[in-house]
Amino acid sequence: MSSPAPTPYDKTKAPTGAPKRTGEWPLFEVFIRGQHGLSHRHVGSLHAPDAEMAVKNARDVYTRRNEGVSIWVVEAEAIHASSPGDKEALYDPSNDKVYRHPTFFDVPDEVGHM
């Protein structure tokens, strides 16, 4: 068994008899900042014809219960991501630098809080 690349789907392919479509609305990733001063957080995605509509749709889909005070939308195609295969190269080196954590150092009791 293998994990095949997803089959490319012809977005303009219309079912028999139906008029030819111009295609799907682009996909946007949605980020919301909650009430309490935290940074924007990814909450999901949605389709919209453009960024302006994406913000409006995000408001309807992701903030029906006061989930946020600020919305970012980013066209999914514009996101560059690391790939799972790079995991070791990217993150393993930090494992052997335990001294980066304050707990690496012993502070004598007499010194008190540091």
Binding site: Y9, R21, E24, L27, G44, S45, V61
Partner: peptide, 17 residues
């Protein structure tokens, strides 16, 4: 429905499909 369609789309199927 929209949350779930988005989740399915991450597996390589489109909404229209």
């Amino acid at each position: 429905g929209l949350y779930l369609y988005c989740a399915a789309e991450t597996l390589g199927i489109t909404r229209d499909e």
